[in-house]
Design a protein around this nucleic acid. Structure first.
Lengths: 256, 256
DNA sequence: TTGCTCCTCACGTCACGTGAGGTGGC
DNA sequence: TTGCTCCTCACGTCACGTGAGGTGGC
C-alpha cells in the first residue's frame, strides 16, 4: 500500500476534525459540542459511516463565533438568533447589557443588605435566630416604604457617617431608650421636665436619621402607622414605650 | 344541629390554615408551599381526612423564617441547614456574602466588556459580524494576559481619558497606521527619516497606552509574541506592516 | 348542580455534567 | 486482546410554573 493510503479516520477528509480534537482545540467539552449538535446550534458537516461527527473548517469558524458570543453572556437561543435569524447584533448586545445591568443593580442591593445584616450580627452579643430573622424582616419590610432615591440617600448618609459614626448613632439610641425606660419605670409623667428633655433628644436623633428630608420623614411616618413602632425602630421600641414617648413628644414646643 | 357544629374545614382546628390561606397571607404561591412540603422544608402540621394540608401557627412562624432567609438569597438547602441542622448563621451569611460578591465582580467585568463592545460597535460604520466577533475574541484573549491589577489600571486610564480622549487616541492610531502604509507603498526604507519620524510617533502612542508601566509593557510584549500583532493591536495591524514598523523602531536611538 | 379549593402526577426550564452500556479503529 | 475515541440514551441540576385530570365542601 502507498503511504498516502495509510490514514486515520481523522485524515480521511483533510481539515475535518473529530469531536475530541475540536473540543481540545476550543477548550470546550465533548458533551458541549454534542449538546450544540442536539439543539441545532452547531451541526457537524457530516457523519462517518460509523456515525462519528466530522467538523469542517466552516463548522470551526461558526464555533468560534458561538464561543465569542457566549463570553458576552448571550444565551444559546440568542446566539442562534444572531447567527441564523439575522437578529440585529447591536440591538441584541444593547438589550443584553440592559439586562445584565438590571441584575447587577439587584445584586448590589443584596450585597449591601448582606453586609449590613452581617455587621449587625457581629455587633450583637449572642444574636438569636429570632432576632436575626426579625432584623431581616424589618429591613425588607421597611425598604419597601422608601423610594429607590430615598434608599440611595440613606445609603449615602451611612457612607458619610462611616462605621464608627453608625455605631455611635446606635449607642446614642440605645442609651436614650434605656433612659426613657428608666423614667417610665420610675413613674415619671410624660409631660414632666426630665421626659421632655429626653423627648428633645429623641426628636434630634430622628432629625439626624431623616436628615431633615421631608420625603423620608413621611416614609418613616408611614412605617409607624402601618407596621408599628417595632418595625420603624428596627425592633428596639415596643408599642407601650412608643406611646409614652409619643406623649412627651406631643407636649414639646414646636421644633426650633 | 347546634350552631357550633356548622363549621368549615378551615375552622375545625382554630389557628390552623389551609394552603390557600397561608399562600395569600405570605404572598407565596400554593405551588411553592407544596414544593416546600415535598422537599421537607415545611411540612404541614397535619392533613385533613381528605388529604388537605393544615398549617399550624408553628408552621407559620417557620415559614416566616424561611421567607426571610430566602430574601437574603440563601438556597433552600442552606435554609434547611440553618433551621434544622444548626449551621452557624453568621458563618452561613458570611459565606453567602462572599459568594455574592464574587458573582458581582464577574458581572461588573462583563458589564464593562459589554459597554466597550457596544461603544466600538456604534463607532464603526457597518460593523461586520466578523469584525465584531474578532473584537470580542481580541478583548477576551488579551484580557487573559493582563493581571487583574493591570486591567484595573487600564480601566482607570480609560476613565481619565473619557469618551473623547479614547476616540482621539483611536484617531491618532488610525492616522499613523495610514501614514505608515503610505510610506510602505511608496517603497520608503524603514531607516529613512520619514519612517523614523513615524516610528517615534508610534513609540509615543505605545508609551501613552502603557502609561510607562513596565508590567503592562511586558504583558503587551507577550501578546505580540504569542498572539501576533493583529491581536495586540486589536485587529488593526497585519504582520507585514508590523515587521516594517519594527525595523524602523529598531533603528531609532534609545528613548529620550 | 355550580364554583371554589384542594389533591397528585408530571413535564418544562438552561446548559450542560455524569454515568450506563455499547461499538468501531489502532 | 488492550486502550482510546466515539456513540446514544437518560437522569440530575434549582425552585418552582404550568397544565392535566380528578375529588371534596358549600
Amino acid at each position: 500500500v502507498a503511504a498516502g493510503e495509510i490514514m486515520t479516520d481523522n485524515e480521511h477528509a483533510p481539515g475535518q476534525l473529530q469531536i475530541g480534537a475540536l473540543a481540545k482545540a476550543t477548550g470546550l467539552t465533548v458533551r458541549t459540542l454534542r449538546h450544540y449538535d442536539a439543539i441545532g446550534l452547531l451541526e457537524p458537516d457530516e457523519r462517518s459511516y460509523s456515525g462519528r461527527r466530522s467538523y469542517s473548517q466552516e463548522n470551526v469558524r461558526r464555533l468560534y463565533r458561538i464561543v465569542a458570543l457566549r463570553r458576552l453572556g448571550l444565551s444559546l437561543d440568542e446566539i442562534v438568533g444572531v447567527l441564523d435569524r439575522d437578529t440585529d447584533l447591536t440591538e441584541a448586545v444593547r438589550q443584553h447589557l440592559a439586562h445584565v445591568e438590571h441584575g447587577l443593580a439587584l445584586q448590589q442591593r443584596l450585597c449591601r443588605t448582606l453586609t449590613r445584616i452581617l455587621a449587625s450580627l457581629e455587633l450583637q452579643h449572642e444574636p438569636t435566630l429570632d432576632q436575626f430573622i426579625q432584623a431581616i424582616e424589618v429591613m425588607t419590610v421597611t425598604e419597601h416604604y422608601y423610594t429607590p432615591e430615598q434608599l440611595q440617600q440613606l445609603e449615602n448618609r451611612r457612607d458619610e457617617l462611616g462605621e464608627e459614626g453608625i455605631r455611635q448613632g446606635e449607642r446614642h439610641w440605645a442609651e436614650l431608650i434605656e433612659a426613657v425606660k428608666a423614667e417610665q419605670a420610675a413613674g415619671t409623667q410624660p409631660v414632666e421636665p426630665p421626659m421632655l428633655e429626653l423627648a428633645r433628644r429623641w426628636r434630634a436623633l430622628i432629625q439626624q436619621f431623616t436628615g431633615g428630608d421631608e420625603g423620608i420623614k413621611r416614609s418613616l411616618a408611614a412605617i409607624y402607622r402601618e407596621q408599628g413602632p417595632k418595625a420603624a425602630s428596627q425592633g428596639t421600641v415596643d408599642p407601650e414605650l412608643m406611646q409614652y414617648v409619643g406623649q412627651a413628644l406631643a407636649a414639646l414646643p414646636p421644633a426650633e
